[in-house]
Simulated scan of single mutants.
Amino acid sequence: MWIALLCLQRLDVPAQTRSPKAPGTEDGLIREALADYQADRIDAAIGKLRQAHTTQPDNPYARLYLGLLLYQKAAKSLEAQEMMESVLDRFPTNPDLVLRLTDSYLATNRESKIPSLLERSKTARASNHRLALNIVYALVRYAQVEQARVVLDGCSTVLQAPRESKADAAGKNAAGPVPSRELGEVFFLRGLIAATTGQKEEAMRQFQTADREDFPPRDSPQMKMLAEALFRFEEYALSA
């Protein structure tokens, strides 16, 4: 697959470790495990989460964090996948869980589970555009272009609506729209999807539209994706 990068950000746990009363950290082992993770001691963190899970097998937070950290250590870990699956109903809007379980299914050739997961994550994506866009990156990375289009279309409708409303209210004499990087990323992803399916003309059109929205930012992972796509299209001057 030609996309070598996926925008999976580091698991965000500081909010859970700052307060002993935060959800899931009533258990001392879980609190210590998350502190270890923050200090880049992932093996120690996993060990403590295993202990927490052994002593409290029904604790959803122990299973959640253990699944996420096992995935981070090995994206193809079936143990991680099973742990994440076991708490999806408990944490259906957790963006770390939804994104990493999506990637886990794709990495282990379990694409048949993706439609169900996308259906269950509709609420999470509707309230978190960053999650929706990152899921599209994951789907495109594994050439799941039809599913990627479905997720992206839902996201683009929401992102374009405010601009269209402002344009209607301003009338014909209004200045051009202010560039929106978030909307530009939608066009960029459309370009990646077109590039994945070999549609050069459509890909170039979408990339140019994204550029007018100031996307992708210089030195970003997406800029590297763009350069790789242009190189494959033999647009060597543009890819430099």
Rank of each mutant, 00 (worst) to 15 (best):
N109Q: 05
K73I: 02
D103W: 06
A75L: 05
Q72W: 02
S77K: 12
L88Y: 14
R90L: 04
S77L: 05
R110A: 11
I114R: 12
Y65P: 02
L118A: 05
L117V: 04
F91M: 13
A75H: 11
S116I: 04
E82V: 00
L78G: 02
E85M: 11
N94M: 11
L97I: 06
Y65W: 15
A107K: 15
N109T: 00
A75T: 05
Y65I: 05
S77H: 06
L117W: 07
T102P: 12
Q81I: 09
L66H: 02
G67R: 00
S104H: 03
T108C: 06
R100M: 09
L117P: 06
P92D: 10
K73H: 07
L106I: 06
L64M: 00
D96F: 08
L118G: 09
T102Q: 15
L78D: 11
L97Q: 09
V87H: 08
E79W: 08
F91I: 03
S112D: 14
E82I: 02
L88F: 07
L64V: 00
L66N: 02
L117Q: 09
D89T: 06
L69P: 01
P115N: 12
M84P: 05
G67M: 01
R110W: 03
L64A: 01
K73V: 02
L118R: 03
P92Q: 11
D89R: 13
I114A: 09
L106A: 12
D103I: 01
L88I: 08
S77D: 14
G67E: 02
L69I: 07
L97N: 07
L117M: 04
T102L: 14
R90H: 13
K76T: 14
R110M: 04
T93R: 14
A107T: 14
P115H: 13
P92A: 11
E82D: 13
E85F: 02
T108P: 02
T102D: 13
K76G: 14
D103S: 05
L70G: 02
K76W: 06
Y105W: 11
E111W: 01
S77F: 06
S86W: 11
L70R: 05
Y65L: 01
L106Q: 11
R90C: 10
E85Y: 06
L99H: 14
V98P: 12
E82N: 15
A80Q: 09
S112R: 10
S112A: 13
L70W: 00
K73L: 07
T93N: 12
L99Y: 12
T108H: 08
E111L: 01
D96M: 07
L69E: 08
M84I: 03
E79Q: 14
V87E: 10
P115E: 09
L88S: 05
L66I: 02
A80L: 13
V98C: 12
F91G: 10
Y71A: 01
L66E: 05
E111P: 00
L69F: 15
T102N: 15
S112N: 06
K113E: 11
R110K: 11
K76A: 15
L78S: 08
S77P: 04
I114Y: 13
T108G: 04
K73R: 15
L70H: 01
L70M: 03
I114Q: 09
P95V: 09
L106M: 13
R90Y: 14
P92H: 13
L88D: 00
R100T: 05
G67A: 00
K73W: 03
L78I: 00
T102G: 08
A74L: 09
E82L: 12
Q72T: 01
L99D: 08
P92W: 09
P92C: 11
L70P: 01
T108L: 03
E79C: 03
